[in-house]
Design a protein around this nucleic acid. Structure first.
Lengths: 204, 204
DNA sequence: GTATGGTTCAAACGATCGTTTGAGGATACG
DNA sequence: CGTATCCTCAAACGATCGTTTGAACCATAC
């Protein structure tokens, strides 16, 4: 089973990287298995199909992200005084960390692409896996921003999510400079994002 | 030439819709030409290749967006007193209008997807087509926010762009309700976005 | 040793892809 | 009318796709 687990992991890692670079339909199983150093048939043997592999690539990262976000939220809500910046940090930093751990911010490009490609099935899959986490964060935001209507709050959280996704995907014009380490760049991103989002959320 | 122009236009329109739904690699020329009601070979005859067709789909919409944004910016900078909200409106509303005119917010999904798929060539193409517009808006933002450092300003404009892209693409949880017309929903989106972005930009 | 269940392998399957071809239709100009 | 130009069309091209197949491999259990 150990050699099997190794094969599965190698496929998942290579898939995450290749999907981000070339897209789900652009990355072929032959490129993927070659990059992973496994046989072509291994994907269908271990995952059943290419579509199931795509789902597993997401599941592995989303479970990690959800766990870290909830842990961070639980940690700060346990304290006596919780600020809006604290909640935003719990929401933002695990996501930015994730885009770094995966080997260079690849996962979020996969995620952003996924929303557009799989019309409903993957979108539903994501909303189901994200739902309970978003609900907890929304409740905490609502507690700290009691003057905002529910609808207003939903809108603003959505906009924060958009700014975060944009920052994670590396779409923007802001690129890390060569003389700034990835860790420092991530910290700068978090600080800018938290300050920007906090101001946007607080405005009456 | 008139029947040729009609064929070209039909291909462009069908391509924009299909690319948004299925992606550049997911939408085949056979699906595309069938939806457009033209012969399969017409794409290669009129555009040379599928890749050139992709570029033309972008060019048609981006030229439109750039023109509208610059016109709106010119209109408000001609006035005596220009507010931050005015500039944001000139930046945001043409984009939201575009996502509506195209037949239901399809174009922005194409755009968001494009950033991820074509690694560098299309990205370069977009930055070249966007560069001069972004420079003018950045200059106007800088004039209205003199206390912000250049780097700070770049960061925040990038975050505004992220929130805008997110809202346009319809990724978010906020969906138009069936009893709200698309026009009204677009106006609500613009108002929420402008207020949120203005607060984020102004924070010291 | 031998049988067994999980895993890897090379090879092939049918389907679909973007592109090319050459014949034929349509229109305008001499 | 003849011819030239632009366009459309059905058909085919070679390549590549996801998937399947059946034999080979390699542990562990008896």
């Amino acid at each position: 089973m150990n050699s099997s687990a190794s094969t599965k992991e190698r496929i998942l890692t290579a898939a995450e990287s290749l999907f981000a670079q070339r897209g789900f339909e652009g990355a072929s199983l032959r490129q993927l298995t070659a990059a992973a150093g496994v046989n072509l048939a291994a994907v269908n043997y271990h995952f059943g199909s290419k579509d199931h592999l795509v789902e597993q690539v997401f599941k592995r990262r989303l479970d990690q992200l959800n766990a870290r976000r909830l842990a961070a939220l639980k940690h700060i809500t346990g304290q006596s005084e919780t600020t809006l910046e604290d909640v935003l940090s719990a929401f933002i930093r695990p996501a930015l960390d994730l885009s770094h751990d995966g080997g260079g911010g690849l996962f979020m490009r996969v995620l952003a692409r996924a929303f557009a490609e799989h019309d409903d099935s993957l979108r539903k899959f994501l909303s189901e896996n994200y739902g309970h986490v978003m609900r907890q964060f929304t409740a905490e935001f609502a507690r700290l921003l009691p003057d905002l209507s529910k609808e207003e709050l939903y809108w603003r959280i959505d906009l924060v999510t958009g700014a975060l996704t944009h920052a994670m995907s590396g779409f923007g014009i802001i690129q890390r400079k060569s003389d700034v380490s990835e860790t420092i760049h991530r910290e700068q991103t978090a600080e800018h994002l938290i300050r920007f989002a906090a101001a946007g959320l607080r405005t009456p």
